[in-house]
């Protein structure tokens, strides 16, 4: 259905261009004194700007954000570490936590202290700063999604089913686009609630 998307995009672009021409050619444009709620600058409730709407429509997400430390998931998982060791609390609450610098230093006080990336971590720890990790998976505020990891872990959903195979990744990549269709497919298969208020409130 790729061509359909592009066709719709072209239609959308033409419509925008027409609207722009009309707006510019209108006499006294920009002089009207409209109340704030009419000109709030919000494109739609789901997408604050037209650019974000187009990005979402074309499924364009930064798939591989650059992290401050070139952390390799592959190496750590190959050594037998479990996801929950660093992403603690994933089985207890909504968030799988992004580990603080203390978690890294618990092992790297003694292990591989001569590597350049580990030296960077040690420097963060010495300065008393935390590592400014860049979030890879997140819902926008406008999605109004309240996702909770804990029930999914209890239902024995593998981390990989939403986050891809981390044994083959260095820093995390957004391999799977977690849109509503992806969630609903799984919820239907497992015969769990697909009521709106299960996730959206």
């Amino acid at each position: 259905m790729g061509w359909l998307k592009w066709l719709l995009l072209i239609v959308f672009a033409v419509t925008c261009a027409c609207a722009l021409v009309k707006a510019v050619s209108r006499p006294h444009a920009g002089q009207t004194d409209l109340p704030a709620y009419v000109t709030s600058g919000v494109f739609t409730t789901a997408h604050p700007t037209a650019f974000l709407a187009a990005k979402d429509f074309l499924d364009f997400h930064p798939e591989h954000p650059v992290q401050p430390i070139a952390f390799t998931h592959a190496v750590h998982l190959a050594k037998g570490l479990q996801c929950e060791f660093c992403h603690a609390g994933v089985d207890q609450g909504p968030d799988a936590r992004i580990p603080g610098v203390a978690v890294c230093m618990a092992c790297h006080q003694v292990i591989a202290t001569d590597r350049p990336e580990i030296k960077k971590i040690a420097a963060y720890a010495a300065r008393g700063e935390d590592i400014p990790w860049v979030r890879v998976y997140a819902y926008s505020d406008s999605a109004h999604v309240k996702f909770n990891h804990a029930p999914h872990i209890r239902a024995h959903i593998q981390c990989a089913s939403c986050h891809g195979d981390m044994t083959k990744q260095t820093t995390a990549e957004r391999k799977i686009n977690l849109n509503m269709g992806y969630c609903i497919d799984c919820h239907r298969q497992k015969r769990v609630s697909i009521d709106c208020a299960t996730c959206h409130y």
């Binding site: 406008s142 999605a143 709106c196």
Partner: peptide, 13 residues
């Protein structure tokens, strides 16, 4: 909703 609430899905509104 199935629990007798009048739900409001903001995304749909």
């Amino acid at each position: 909703t199935s629990e007798g609430l009048n739900g409001q899905a903001y995304n749909r509104c």
